[in-house]
Design a protein around this nucleic acid. Structure first.
Lengths: 341, 341
DNA sequence: ATGAAAGCGCTAACAA
DNA sequence: TTGTTAGCGCTTTCAT
C-alpha cells in the first residue's frame, strides 16, 4: 500500500485535482440527486477510491445545517429489555443512514445535562427511552425544532411524539390472565418510584381489579430489578395465605419474586400462587422460570420510534403522533390454566 | 420565555454582539485554558445563557481537526455481559468529555463497513468489542492514525491497543475449580465458531487438563447463547455417566446447559456433575442457578479500554499496550466444595 | 454539466 | 487581554 508518509487527510480538493475536475463536481459525486454526468461521477469515485477519500461529515453538516447524527438517551442500558430496545434502535438508525450518539442517563438531572450536549452536534433528532427525562428537554428541543420521540413516557407533555405500550390493556390483560388461572385474591408488585409505563400498568391493573370487585393488595419494591423482586418475597412470603395471584410490573421483578418465593419460602408457583410479569424479556422464557407474562415487543417499539423520528425530520410540521403498541398475553408456567384447555 | 420567532440558530457572532466583544473572546470563553479575563468570560457566559447559545461542535471540530466523537463498535449488544460493557464504556466516554457513536455490528463484513462510516466523522478513537472485527479496520485506522482499542480480541494484529482477559488463567482456574470440587472426568462446552476470548479460554482449559493427565471431552455448541447451552444438554445428558465436571465457555451457555440437564434430564447439579461458567453475568447469581463461575469484570474492562484510548489520543506515539485483566474464581452452588471448607 | 466564489460557525495565528 | 484575519472542508447559488 503506497500511502504517503505525510499524515495529511485527503480532501475533496485532492480528489478534484486527481480526477481533473473541480471541487464542486467531487461534491456532487457524493450527493445523490445532484446533477452530474455519469462519466464525471465514475472518474471521481475512482479517484476517491484510489486516494482513500471519505467525505467529512463535520464540514458537510456545517454547510447543510444538519448532521446525520441522532441522539439515543437511555437509562439502565444493562437491563435486558432496554438493551434490546437500544440495540434495535441503533441498528435501525444506522440502516436509515443516521449515526446514533448513545447517552446513558441514570437520573433526571443527568439526562437533562446530557441531552443539552446533543445540541452541540446539531443532532437531527433525539430518542429518549430513559425512565425520567425532564420535560425541559422537550421545550428545548422544540425551541431548536429538533424532533424528539419519547418511548414509554407519558404524552402529557405536548410537542413530542410518543411510542408507548397500552398501559390500560396491560392492566386488563394481567387481570384476565390471573382470573383465567383461577386467582381471586389478587395483588400487584410495583416499584415505589413513579414512572409512566411501569407505575401506569400497575395502576391500570389495580383499577381493573376494582372494577371487577376484587380489590388488589399493593406491594412496593425499591426499584424494578431482580433483587428488588427478591426482597419483596420477604414481605409477600408471610402473607401468602391471603393471596393466590400477583401481577409484577416488570419481568425482572417477577423473576426475583419467583426465586424468593420458591427458594426462600418453599412456596410453589403456580400451585400456591399464580404470577404474571410484564415485558417478556428473554430470561422469562428460561426453563427455570417459564414466566407467564405480557409481551411488549421491544423491536417493534424501537423501529416505530426511529421511523416516527425520521418522518418528523422530513416533515417537521406533521401533527404530533402517539404510537400505541399492542400487547400479547403469554401463558407459560406460572399461571394455572383452566381445565377446559 | 422570550424566544424570537425566527428559527435562526444562535451563533458566536450573536453572543459577541450581545456581550459587546469580538467573536474570539466568545470562543475563548468556551475554551478552557484560553487567555481571557474573568470579567469578559463572565459577560460572555451571561450573554450566552440569555440567548441560549451552544457551541457548534461540528464547526469547532472542523477547525481543531478532531471531533470529540468516539466510535464504539459492539456485537450482541443485547447480551448481558456486552450490554454492561457498553454501558460503562459509554458512560466513561461521556464523563471524559467524549460522545460515543454506537455501531452495532453482527458480522465481520458489517463491522468493516460500519467502521468506515466512523471516518466520516473524524472520530477521535474507536473501541471495538465485537466478536469478529476485520483486521482491515485496524490498518485503516492506522493509516488515518485513529487510536483503536480492541476488547477481548487477540493482540495478533499489531498497531492496536488491547484489553483482554487472561485466557490461560481462565483455563487454569476452570480446571482448578472443577478439581477442587472433586471432578476428575472433565469436559468443556464451547461454540464451534472461533473467537479469541471464548474459544481461547476453552482451549486453555483443555490444555491444562492435558497437562494434568486428565484429558477433557469437547462438546461444541452452535453459538454462545442460552439456547445453545440448552441444546447441548441433548448431547451431554446421555453421556452423563462418563463425566463429573464441565467447563462452559460462557455463563449463558452454562445457564442453558444447567436448565437442560435439570429440567429435561433430571440430572442433579452439582451432585452428579459440577458446572463452571465464565464471565459472571448478573443472571449467574440468580437463586435458580447460583452458578459457580470465573468472573471477568466488565466495568474494569470498559474503563480500561476508554482510558487507554484517551491516553493514546493524547500521545499517539505511545508504545502499543495490552491490558491483561485478572480473573476471580467464584464458587457458588454448581460445584461441590471440599469438606475441609 | 461544470466551475468560480461565497460562506456555514468556529478557532488560531498574529498584531495591537 | 483583546480584536483582526485567515482558513478548516464542504455545499451551493450563480454564471458559463
Amino acid at each position: 500500500m503506497m500511502t504517503s508518509p505525510t499524515e495529511k487527510r485527503i480532501t475533496s480538493f485532492d480528489v478534484a485535482r486527481h480526477a481533473g475536475v473541480s471541487r464542486s463536481v467531487v461534491s456532487r459525486a457524493f450527493t445523490k440527486g445532484a446533477t452530474i454526468s455519469d462519466t464525471a461521477r465514475a472518474k471521481v469515485l475512482q479517484s476517491a477510491d484510489e486516494l482513500g477519500y471519505q467525505v467529512n461529515y463535520l464540514a458537510r453538516g456545517l454547510q447543510t445545517k444538519h448532521s446525520n447524527l441522532v441522539g439515543i438517551v437511555a437509562s439502565a442500558l444493562d437491563t435486558p429489555y432496554r438493551a434490546r430496545q437500544v440495540r434495535i434502535a441503533a441498528q435501525e438508525c444506522i440502516k436509515r443512514g443516521f449515526r446514533p450518539i448513545l447517552l446513558t442517563a441514570e437520573s433526571a438531572v443527568e439526562s437533562e445535562k446530557l441531552t443539552s450536549l446533543l445540541f452541540n452536534y446539531n443532532v437531527a433528532g433525539v430518542i429518549i427511552t430513559s425512565a425520567e427525562p425532564s420535560s425541559k428537554i422537550i421545550t428545548e428541543c422544540n425551541r431548536l425544532s429538533i424532533p424528539i420521540v419519547m418511548v414509554n413516557r407519558g404524552s402529557d407533555i405536548s410537542g413530542a411524539d410518543c411510542v408507548q405500550m397500552d398501559i390500560d390493556q396491560a392492566g386488563a390483560l394481567a387481570y384476565q390472565m390471573l382470573n383465567e388461572a383461577g386467582a381471586r385474591r389478587l395483588a400487584v408488585l410495583m416499584p415505589s418510584v413513579e414512572s409512566y409505563s411501569v407505575s401506569g400498568r400497575a395502576r391500570a391493573f389495580v383499577k381493573t381489579c376494582k372494577k371487577h370487585k376484587t380489590p388488589a393488595l399493593i406491594f412496593t419494591s425499591s426499584d424494578q430489578s431482580y433483587n428488588a423482586g427478591l426482597d419483596a418475597a420477604q414481605e409477600i412470603g408471610p402473607r401468602i395465605d391471603t393471596l393466590d395471584g400477583i401481577f409484577c410490573a416488570t419481568d425482572l421483578l417477577a423473576l426475583g419474586l419467583l426465586d424468593g418465593l420458591r427458594h426462600k419460602w418453599n412456596i410453589e408457583v403456580p400451585e400456591k400462587l399464580s404470577v404474571v410479569g410484564c415485558d417478556d424479556i428473554e430470561q422469562a422464557s428460561w426453563c427455570s422460570y417459564k414466566l407467564s407474562t405480557i409481551r411488549q415487543d421491544a423491536d417493534e417499539q424501537a423501529i416505530a420510534a426511529v421511523s416516527i423520528m425520521l418522518k418528523r425530520i422530513e416533515d417537521p410540521t406533521m401533527a404530533t403522533q402517539t404510537y400505541i403498541q399492542n400487547l400479547t398475553p403469554l401463558h407459560r408456567g406460572t399461571t394455572k390454566r383452566p381445565i377446559r384447555k
